[in-house]
Nucleic acid binder design. Structure first.
Lengths: 226, 226
DNA sequence: TTAGTTTGTAACATTTCTGTAACATTAACT
DNA sequence: AGTTAATGTTACAGAAATGTTACAAACTAA
């Protein structure tokens, strides 16, 4: 998982627990314990998602929510509202005010994480890194497997990383320099032509007989998925 | 999971989160927010395990701990101490005072749950009934036995822990570092190649003649069950 | 203690991967 | 068409990762 998450919540222990667990998942987390501070920090931090407590010392979550939506920069910022038990009837109001999802306290981290993933997947699919998919290609990062049309394809380590890299942003054209930086271990120097050879190998592996070519060559620019 | 768990902790939100998650796992949970109340309730509730905060409003966890040990009924009550960050040096004292394990805040619920299971497994194995299965493999944690196709397989201690670890998340690829961290006792340093040898031993043990290979090697990444 | 396990490591064997060079082909441009 | 630069393709030697075996030290149970 990638991305930045901002939390506005007045209970420090909740922040602590959530932050700890989210960071373990590779996310960047920042927080505030009241609405005023929160709105200020938000602009600096530029998160990909906001966790917002319903009841704050200064403002209610719904007020903050409306406030945020006024700012064009955050018009589409996904928000998950945290509500305490017994505020059930307010849920609808919450959703009306432009919240993407809500969660009732107490919640387990797994529940929260699942919601975050779901919301982020909608708003910014790149960030959710579980499995990568494109057309009939599927790449499972946990199991380190690749499938084309449900059929498993065996790839060498570099081929795997290469495909993984392309899949984070399919269709986008990457220069050889960019590929080098992102796919090869740091500070390793290889000839630029080496990439061509690996592309060739990857092509050979993923293009089973008479299937559509998946890697496009953009002459003098680089390669991309297509 | 069965059994009763008592929590003495002054932070209500922590109690709430822990209690919620433990109950989801089938445990019976009760709690107190200070030492006095806690000691009283304890006697009525008769838990199988106690979660004890290090810093309480009235007593320190260590005082409570000593107090409990005086009572013959609770002489052997397993205790897991919850300490805040930066109280590292106190850990030893904590263990001396008859605590079975400790956990530093903030912690993830999964960490806590793993500790609870580990401690309960020692003190009262009946309560922990989690056996692991995958394909035709069965691993009995209580009796420390492993079966393939109903036929028992004898494993050495490290082989057992290794297999146990893989079974918690079969199919997932684990790096040698992850394996090291999770299978070897803390702070023990062994060569990374040592893992390969243990994998080999495990393979030899669980792959009875001409049975399907169960451990997959993922070059440059690690191993997984398959 | 003693005999039998278990463990970590080193050493060697085997497999798989990687980078490069050399040559072939294609695309772009005049 | 001819020229040039970029990319495709192939083969191969060395590198790197993993498999395998043996052994001495540490540990256990009797």
């Amino acid at each position: 998982m990638n991305g930045k998450i901002f939390i506005i919540e007045d209970e420090p222990s909740i922040i602590q627990l959530v932050q700890y667990n989210l960071e373990k998942e590779g996310l960047i987390v920042s927080s505030a314990t009241n609405g005023n501070e929160g709105l200020k920090e938000l602009k600096k931090f530029k998160p990909n998602l906001l966790l917002l407590d319903w009841m704050l010392p200064d403002f209610s979550g719904i007020e903050i929510c409306k406030n945020i939506r006024k700012d064009t920069n955050f018009k589409n910022l996904p928000i998950i509202m945290l509500t305490a038990k017994g505020e059930e009837e307010d849920k609808i109001k919450g959703l009306d005010s432009g919240v993407d999802d809500y969660l009732t306290k107490p919640f387990s981290f797994n529940e929260l994480f699942a919601r975050i993933k779901a919301v982020l997947r909608r708003s910014d699919p790149k960030l959710v890194s579980d499995n990568l998919e494109f057309e009939d290609l599927k790449l499972d990062r946990n199991e380190k497997r690749v499938f084309r049309n449900e059929k498993e394809i065996k790839l060498g380590p570099t081929e795997f990383r290469l495909l993984e890299f392309f899949l984070t942003n399919p269709k986008r054209v990457y220069s050889r320099d960019q590929i080098l930086e992102n796919v090869w271990p740091n500070n390793i120097n290889v000839e630029s032509r080496t990439i061509d050879v690996h592309i060739r190998r990857l092509r050979k592996s993923i293009n089973l007989k008479d299937q559509k070519e998946l890697i496009r060559t953009v002459r003098s620019s680089g390669y991309s998925l297509i």
